[in-house]
Nucleic acid binder design. Structure first.
Length: 484
RNA sequence: CGGGGCGUAGCUCAGCCAGGUUAGAGUGCACGGUUCGGGACCGUGAGGUCGGUGGUUCAAAUCCACUCGCCCCGACCA
């Protein structure tokens, strides 16, 4: 970033305490760290440069992973003819309440309304019909980065807005096995982004029937835990079998010269990730960014009281920024007192603060302070090219480890409905139980716990396990939680 | 869409219950000066259709009706 950027404006000191008012704290942090703001349009937000930079730092590595796994980026229309969306029964039923429609154009009523895409399965299946003729055209692995619209009743910055940014991957395969492999491959990429980049440990697995994507044969997801103990669905990967290709009459000629429907998948991760990072790592001082996705990894605060000191510090800064390359460094030369800058950059979650003043330079050192724990270290200037990357790495791991311990501390294994109800009455987090997969059990738990639902199915149950809810033989082990 | 809360300066809010000069504070903003290792201070200045419409009244930010919007909780959901 440039050193001579104009001062931040509109900065407000107070943020509500995380422990007292979590939703209020979240709103304050998002707005005061200048990630995003409310807009003139209800339910739609303005993503500000700092928030967009965080998004880019999540988006870019994800885009790399998507390309490395063989996918190509496409772009499809944002407006979808209503009839396209009506073809897959479950899909229509699931999404219709969320449609936003264009009914006029060119001053006239349209013959057919155009829906602002809530997701692009229908458009992509309709278009790719023409591109897929033979098994030789498969697999067809597409992805697109775009905005989508869903008419949500209640919105929250980043977590649920009427319009949001994401990527949606759509793939078509010759066999079911290949498509299912794709579904888990892409879920694994999401796990890597969540855990390795955003430092948020996740549970990965299948969703229950009632929680699956409208139109899918099954849905898989990654679920993280926020600092209020609630679950955040951070990425989904769906297996469609032939549901969509059949509905859209998408066929190919197989190896035996017979017409077949391809097996398809879709998967998506959105700007919701930015909000997840805030909620998974923030504290009463504000946001805390994992170094790998931080727009500014190191902020240098020069401390000077005279012109002589200023030129001394200036040359030290120039030497350091030249020597420490491949690190995103910002130098804050604004005419503010150091304490003001410390607080502001902590609010914005910068992982490392480097203080450079006469006292440090007299010893040939700088002071490094970690946002994670405010640990201060006097570091010789010559060591910085190795010390800074090492410290960033330790912070990245430290954040992940802290989040993992928080999740472990808020995860319990329970064996009965009573215990499950008690868990959600007395605490928050994940409760893991054996389950028979009956939908009635989900309704029971939701009613008795004030809203806990199944998050992901973690694996198969053993033959002797009984469903914690109804006592019938269990088929799976499932994590329950209250979700965003 | 149900419950609760709120719309007064860029932001946070006081004033409203008991209507009455030229509508306030803090913060932010501009300029000048002193400061500068954990949110400094002094001075000067700019900034307002009190969300909107209608009503009551000699008089409305304040009372009444309607309306628009936002936030929080719930149902629905990435």
């Amino acid at each position: 970033m440039a050193d001579d950027e104009k001062p931040e404006t509109g900065f407000v000191k107070e943020i509500r305490k995380q422990s007292v008012d979590f939703p209020g704290w979240y709103n304050d942090v998002v707005r005061k760290a200048q990630l995003a703001d409310y807009s003139p349009v209800r339910g739609c937000m303005v993503i500000r440069p700092y928030g967009y930079a965080v998004w880019e730092n999540i988006r870019d590595p994800l885009d790399q992973l998507i390309k490395q796994t063989g996918h190509e980026n496409w772009y499809f229309p944002a407006l979808i003819p209503l009839s396209f969306l009506m073809k897959e029964a479950e899909h229509v039923e699931g999404f219709q309440p969320e449609f936003a429609m264009v009914t006029r154009g060119g001053g006239e009523e349209l013959k057919e309304p155009l829906v602002l895409r809530p997701t692009s399965e229908t458009m992509i299946a309709s278009v790719l019909k023409d591109y897929i003729q033979s098994y030789r055209d498969l697999p067809l692995l597409t992805n697109q980065w775009n905005n989508v619209f869903r008419w949500e009743l209640r919105t929250r910055l980043f977590l649920r807005t009427l319009e949001f940014l994401w990527q949606e991957g759509h793939t078509f395969h010759e066999t079911a096995a290949e498509a299912e492999e794709e579904v888990s491959r892409m879920l694994e990429q999401y796990r890597r982004i969540a855990e390795d980049w955003c430092a948020i440990p996740v549970l990965a697995g299948r969703k229950s029937e009632s929680e699956k994507f409208a139109g899918a044969a099954y849905t898989t997801a990654i679920e993280g835990m926020m600092l209020d103990g609630k679950a955040m669905q951070m990425g989904t990967s769906h297996y469609f079998a032939q549901n969509f290709t059949r509905a859209y009459e998408l066929t190919f000629t197989g190896r035996g010269n017979e017409r077949e429907h391809p097996y398809s998948t879709s998967w998506g991760m959105s700007t919701r990730m930015v909000g997840s990072v805030v909620m998974a790592h923030g504290d009463d001082f504000g946001m805390q960014l994992p170094p790998r996705i931080a727009p500014v990894q190191v902020v240098i605060i020069p401390i000077v009281r005279s012109d002589a000191e200023r030129s001394q510090v200036e040359s030290a800064v120039a030497g350091i920024t030249a020597a420490v390359d491949d690190i995103r460094i910002k130098v804050d030369w604004r005419d503010e007192r150091p304490g003001f800058k410390f607080n502001e950059w902590e609010l914005k979650g910068v992982p490392i603060r480097m203080e450079i003043g006469p006292r440090d330079l007299a010893k040939g050192e700088v002071t490094l302070v970690r946002r994670l724990d405010r640990a201060r270290t006097a570091t010789p200037i010559g060591d910085l090219p190795t010390a800074v990357p090492a410290m960033l790495e330790s912070i990245q791991l430290g954040l992940f480890e802290r989040a993992r311990q928080f999740r472990e501390a808020h995860t319990s294994r329970v064996e009965s409905l009573d215990a499950l109800v008690r868990f959600f009455t007395e605490s928050v987090g994940f409760a893991i139980t054996p389950w028979c997969e009956a939908e009635q059990d989900e309704l029971t738990v939701k009613a008795r716990t004030g809203g806990a639902t199944t998050r992901v199915i973690l694996g198969r149950a053993t033959a002797d396990q009984r469903c914690a809810i109804c006592g019938r033989p269990a088929t799976v082990e499932v994590a329950w939680g209250k979700a965003y």
